[in-house]
Protein backbone atom coordinates (compact mmCIF):
# COMPACT_ATOMS: atom_id res chain seq x y z
CA UNK A 1 0.00 0.00 0.00
CA UNK A 2 1.32 3.42 -0.92
CA UNK A 3 0.84 6.20 1.62
CA UNK A 4 2.33 9.62 2.25
CA UNK A 5 4.27 10.19 5.47
CA UNK A 6 5.24 13.77 6.32
CA UNK A 7 4.97 14.64 2.65
CA UNK A 8 7.10 11.73 1.38
CA UNK A 9 5.71 8.67 -0.44
CA UNK A 10 6.16 5.31 1.33
CA UNK A 11 5.23 1.73 0.39
CA UNK A 12 4.22 -0.10 3.52
CA UNK A 13 2.80 -3.51 4.40
CA UNK A 14 1.36 -2.48 7.78
CA UNK A 15 -2.45 -2.50 7.93
CA UNK A 16 -2.87 -0.10 10.86
CA UNK A 17 -1.39 3.22 11.92
CA UNK A 18 0.34 1.60 14.92
CA UNK A 19 1.95 -1.02 12.68
CA UNK A 20 2.97 1.62 10.15
CA UNK A 21 4.76 3.64 12.84
CA UNK A 22 6.64 0.48 13.86
CA UNK A 23 7.51 -0.27 10.24
CA UNK A 24 8.80 3.28 9.77
CA UNK A 25 11.04 3.01 12.85
CA UNK A 26 8.98 5.15 15.21
CA UNK A 27 7.87 2.40 17.59
CA UNK A 28 9.53 4.04 20.58
CA UNK A 29 9.51 7.66 19.42
CA UNK A 30 7.56 10.32 21.25
CA UNK A 31 5.31 11.41 18.38
CA UNK A 32 1.72 12.46 17.75
CA UNK A 33 -0.19 11.56 14.63
CA UNK A 34 -2.82 12.75 12.19
CA UNK A 35 -4.30 10.93 9.20
CA UNK A 36 -5.80 12.94 6.34
CA UNK A 37 -5.87 16.06 8.51
CA UNK A 38 -7.57 14.49 11.52
CA UNK A 39 -5.87 13.81 14.84
CA UNK A 40 -5.52 10.12 15.69
CA UNK A 41 -4.77 9.73 19.42
CA UNK A 42 -2.25 7.22 20.72
CA UNK A 43 -5.05 5.04 22.08
CA UNK A 44 -6.69 4.79 18.64
CA UNK A 45 -3.63 3.95 16.54
CA UNK A 46 -3.99 0.17 16.82
CA UNK A 47 -7.57 0.26 15.60
CA UNK A 48 -6.95 2.79 12.83
CA UNK A 49 -6.83 0.95 9.50
CA UNK A 50 -4.85 2.64 6.76
CA UNK A 51 -5.93 2.89 3.15
CA UNK A 52 -4.03 3.41 -0.06
CA UNK A 53 -3.33 7.12 -0.54
CA UNK A 54 -3.66 8.10 3.14
CA UNK A 55 -1.69 11.15 4.24
CA UNK A 56 -0.03 10.64 7.62
CA UNK A 57 1.56 13.37 9.68
CA UNK A 58 3.99 12.32 12.42
CA UNK A 59 4.91 15.27 14.60
CA UNK A 60 7.30 15.87 17.46
CA UNK A 61 8.07 18.74 19.89
CA UNK A 62 9.90 21.60 18.27
CA UNK A 63 10.96 25.18 18.95
CA UNK A 64 8.15 27.71 18.78
CA UNK A 65 7.32 31.35 19.44
Amino acid sequence: MRIEVNGEPHDIAAPTLLDALRELGWAEARVVTAVNGDFVPLSARAAHDLRDGDRIEVLTPMQGG
Partner: peptide, 10 residues
Protein backbone atom coordinates in the same frame (compact mmCIF):
# COMPACT_ATOMS: atom_id res chain seq x y z
CA UNK B 1 6.63 25.36 21.91
CA UNK B 2 5.37 23.89 18.65
CA UNK B 3 4.91 20.63 16.78
CA UNK B 4 6.73 19.91 13.56
CA UNK B 5 7.37 16.88 11.38
CA UNK B 6 9.56 14.27 13.06
CA UNK B 7 13.03 14.58 11.62
CA UNK B 8 15.00 12.99 14.45
CA UNK B 9 15.60 16.11 16.56
CA UNK B 10 12.37 16.17 18.54
Amino acid sequence: VSLRREGGRG
